[in-house]
Write a protein that binds this DNA or RNA. Structure first.
Ligand code: ZN
Ligand code: ZN
Ligand code: ZN
Ligand code: ZN
Lengths: 174, 174
DNA sequence: TAGATTTTGTTATGATATAACAAGTCAAAC
DNA sequence: GTTTGACTTGTTATATCATAACAAAATCTA
């Protein structure tokens, strides 16, 4: 299997990795968001911008009500529509993804490139890694087409044990 | 792309197809369920059995509360734990799948064969087709392993337009 | 600035899922 | 055939996730 997908190596890390400055991720994501919104004539309002930041500041996918609580702490309105509107906006703009199997939301590091969100989710530490995999995408389109099915969206969420948690588990046994 | 997967052609149809007697599906699924439960020393109690039947009788994935309402009509207890316990049992036994992106439950026609549930979901008619695809499964395991990730479960839910709805749409335009 | 459009505030409700503990059922062991 | 223990179900309450509907405010356009 080749692994020459476009932005695969760019963000295939765990957010908690000690070897990366997560602030850089956030800054970069926010800058991209600003640019994209301007390009598309969309308004990245205060609450939308802050929601995006808060999602990025979390090292794990963030639930809507977790995000709402954080926004409320900062003086934003604390009713559910506030957060769901912000999430809807960010999802539509491709700035975040929803992880269906967790009912949680995750910043996308490649918002400027059209792509599907594929995820590796650790059952143990709940870290989520987004990966891109053009071969799978192509194969799925072809497979669907075989059934006369025209593919529009893909929910690909893989769960299991990440390498760190696997090591930890092995250590515990030994 | 080869399509020589084990049970792919066995149930890759829409439930509403006029060319198949859905009662046969239900009877077969229930018989398999009985057998599997006996083999595994599990008890397919009245409510569990009836829940499974009701899920199969629906031509689309059934929500937990829809199922609960049907069970209540038949004199079963009408509190949520009743239905969620039945669903948990059927999921654990591999007799049904949950479609995460719909929060709904679907009978599995291949409960006797270990497999992952991959789904094609029509945005228009909401029919769901389960498919199996060994090539994808193998590729995903390998891809995860590259990241040191040990794969345990896969949520693969593809949405789009089924062939029938595509035809309908084309007809409407012409 | 007037009018249109978009965004936000607010209240209420709908939809999905689980916690906790009591009571009932069943089958093996005695 | 009763006891015992495991499993299953009943019951009440609550947690969690998401949207409807309409009013008010902010922003944009002309
Ligand atoms: Zn992404
Ligand atoms: Zn982990
Ligand atoms: Zn299945
Ligand atoms: Zn359809």
């Amino acid at each position: 299997m080749k692994t020459t997908e476009p932005h695969q190596s760019e963000h295939e890390h765990e957010h908690q990795s000690s070897s990366h400055n997560h602030n850089d991720c956030i800054d970069s994501a926010l800058a991209t968001a600003e640019t994209l919104c301007v390009q598309q004539g969309q308004r990245l309002t205060k609450v939308r911008r802050r929601a995006l930041e808060l999602i990025w500041e979390s090292h794990r996918p963030l639930g809507a009500y977790q995000l709402l609580a954080k926004l409320a702490e900062e003086g934003f309105n604390s009713a559910p529509p506030t957060v769901y509107r912000a999430l809807d906006f960010l999802l539509a703009a491709g700035l975040i993804h929803k992880v269906e199997s967790m009912n949680a939301y995750l910043g996308c590091a490649h918002a400027d490139k059209a792509h599907k969100g594929y995820f590796l989710i650790c059952d143990d530490c709940h870290n989520v890694m987004e990966f891109d995999y053009q071969d799978i995408h192509t194969a799925l389109i072809a497979k669907a087409a075989q059934q006369g099915f025209e593919l529009r969206a893909e929910t690909i969420e893989l769960t299991g044990l990440c390498s760190k948690c696997k090591s930890k588990a092995a250590g515990a046994i030994a």
